[in-house]
């Protein structure tokens, strides 16, 4: 049963990884906590599920959900972030939160507050692994997460866009002086982050075959914890932190109950912030947080 729980934890961790990566892209590059990501994730899930229910294929649903969330992320960037770029960090925090209130309201009015369910789970078959088993969808979630992370890795490490993003992350002004189109790169960071959130939403929608307008908030807060544990200024930390928190969560449920679970997750986050603010994987430098 422990093996089965580890598989459960890894799947959950994969989901957290994607959303945390989405938070961390914007946080790492621009130093902004975009709270609307939680809702972009939820909307991505709704778009994907709606398309499947309308009879479209997965191959349309996933990119469509990513595109919708990506575009909405750009809207958030233009309206809620760009005008407040120089404001204290609390401003974009609250303006992106305002967007999440709007998105949630829209979802309730369009899809209702009841869970939207797939008539049949997409792929119910399970592969046996001795005493444990893994669902096809579970496997798909993990595989797609790894693929998306690799794709993102390639973008960030080896493309012009990626170099620009890294330059902006180091120092926005210097990057601009050196000729990087900082404002276009900012838009790109939001768009990438949004489509990752959309992908996470649609994967979760398929995996759990049900979604509600309220999945964003709690999952989003957990993903923030994952981002912190992974080191908020270094994108790759979440690859370790996601599965770590996923497994920790699953084990604390088994051995302690759901109340202990949140204590463990957020306790871990606070510990990391206090003892290793650069994250479990981060280098030796401590990030100088922006002044409030």
């Amino acid at each position: 049963m422990l093996l089965q729980q580890l598989i459960n934890g890894l799947t959950l961790g994969a989901v957290y990884t994607l959303i945390a990566l989405s938070f961390s892209l914007v946080m790492g590059i621009l130093g902004v906590l975009n709270l609307a990501i939680a809702e972009l994730f939820m909307l991505g899930g709704y778009c994907g599920l709606t398309l499947i229910i309308m009879g479209h294929s997965v191959w349309l649903a996933v990119p469509a959900a990513m595109a919708v969330s990506g575009v909405l992320a750009v809207v958030v960037e233009r309206v809620a972030y760009r005008p407040l770029r120089d404001a204290p960090m609390i401003m974009p925090l609250l303006s992106t939160l305002a967007f999440s209130i709007i998105f949630q309201n829209v979802a309730v009015n369009v899809w209702g507050s009841d869970p939207l369910q797939l008539p049949d789970a997409l792929a119910d078959a399970r592969l046996s692994l001795g005493t444990a088993s893994i669902g096809i969808m579970q496997l798909a979630v993990i595989v797609v997460t790894v693929l998306l992370v690799v794709a993102l890795g390639v973008i960030v490490q080896s493309t012009k866009l990626g170099r620009g993003l890294r330059a902006v992350a180091e120092n926005r002004e210097v990057a601009r002086i050196l000729g990087a189109p900082a404002s276009r790169l900012t838009t790109a960071a939001f768009a990438l982050s949004g489509s990752l959130a959309g992908a996470a939403g649609v994967l979760i929608g398929f995996h759990y075959a049900a979604i509600t307008p309220y999945v964003g908030v709690d999952t989003g807060l957990k993903a923030i914890a994952v981002m912190v544990v992974g080191g908020s200024t270094r994108i790759w930390g979440v690859l370790i932190a996601g599965p770590l928190i996923g497994v920790a969560e699953v084990l604390s449920v088994v051995y302690g109950g759901s109340a202990i679970r949140d204590m463990v997750v957020y306790g871990l986050m606070i510990l990391v912030l206090l003892l290793r603010p650069q994250g479990v994987l981060g280098g030796s430098s401590m990030p100088e947080g922006e002044r409030v």
């Binding site: 946080m27 925090l93 908020s232 912030l273 206090l274 947080g289 922006e290 409030v292």
Partner: peptide
């Protein structure tokens, strides 16, 4: 020990 957004996230936790 914490500043800015990091303090905000720790208090959230």
């Amino acid at each position: 020990r914490l500043r800015g957004i990091y303090l905000a996230m720790a208090t959230l936790g």
